[in-house]
Write a protein that binds this DNA or RNA. Sequence first.
DNA 1: ACCTGAACACCGTTCAAGT
DNA 2: ACCTGAACACCGTTCAAGT
Lengths: 217, 217
Amino acid sequence: MAPRNAVPPADAADAAPVRVRLSRAAVVDAALDLLDDVGLDGLTTRRLADRLGVKSASLYYHVRDKGQLLDLIAERIAAEIEIPDPALPWRTRLDTMLTSLRQVLLAHRDSAVIMAERTPRGPAWLAVSDAAVRALLDAGRSPEEAAALIGVLVGYVTGYVLDSGPWTEQELAEHSRRLAALPRDRYPALARLAPLLTDPDPEAQFRFGVDFLLGAI
Amino acid sequence: MAPRNAVPPADAADAAPVRVRLSRAAVVDAALDLLDDVGLDGLTTRRLADRLGVKSASLYYHVRDKGQLLDLIAERIAAEIEIPDPALPWRTRLDTMLTSLRQVLLAHRDSAVIMAERTPRGPAWLAVSDAAVRALLDAGRSPEEAAALIGVLVGYVTGYVLDSGPWTEQELAEHSRRLAALPRDRYPALARLAPLLTDPDPEAQFRFGVDFLLGAI
DNA sequence: ACCTGAACACCGTTCAAGT
DNA sequence: ACCTGAACACCGTTCAAGT
């Protein structure tokens, strides 16, 4: 009296694709996983379908487009940004959010590129924006100023992550060499900075930028 | 005694592809033109080859990769950034460069995305960086500060252009509607700004950001 | 309602071969 | 030295059809 609809026979070569019930959320989750594993270039609808144990055409039942899929990923990423307690001082709040934004962008491969290409428009991002604006207003800036300053702040963080970029060890070494070999007569100012840029300590440089910006507000 | 190797017979349907002698520079020029016409998604090696009146395989004689092609485009774009007379006051110099950077990014379709993905490493971009660093040093900042501040400035401009984005009329209208309909209880701060964000006057907002940053330096 | 089979119109890249 | 023919291994997307 073996159960009728039990798990498939163990001899089946059912390796990776676990086939949960598909849904938009499941698709987006899997897409983000895939992104982290293989990067933006590797994120194809066909590979994603494979992972989900499904044919690529099936995805289009849950998602309009690859474009929309990327939008949804952007929102999912935005949802990971920490939103601080509004009772804290405004500067602490902004600091937390900027640091968290950077953290999140570093945590997900190529996420900075995605966020740069398509500014998220969903509720998660709206919540982040709202908290940031509120902090700026609490800092005593006018609405006009606040509107422009979010651009400055977010622009700084994403810009910064973008060009710390996905550099390999090799590329970094190569970059250092080029900087060191910089013709002093042609790029005098840059050459003076070369030692600094060679060993960047991105953490500290990012902090400096944040402190500079927050100090100026 | 008609010339032997004259132009091909006029009856040939030789419409668009003018077939200059191919070279790396010609390839990059054509690629930038194509980019401006069809955007980053439309910029394919095959279409580019068509434009040049050549088979796509031929491109690989002049360029290693599509990646390298994009790097070269980034450098070509960087070359269009205005580098001001070093005799001018430092603030004017930075202002000119930032404004020019924005102008250039707006002039070439999707160029902000390209610059964001791949920071140019060629001489044109080095020259820009050098001029910027020099201005910062002239402003009295330490080398450490200067190094971090280029990140802030460039990050701001590209970030800003990126999310002013390639919005269509429709998308803008839709965006305004969503902002106006923002649930006041959920996004109180954002809702206060809605009227501002609806009619953005990007020019003025950009100026505000620049003045803010330069003022803080 | 949800998924598949099969196809369409593309991609970037390689490589032997032509001139 | 410079370019082509022809192929390889992919893409995103659609759509009739299955359950």
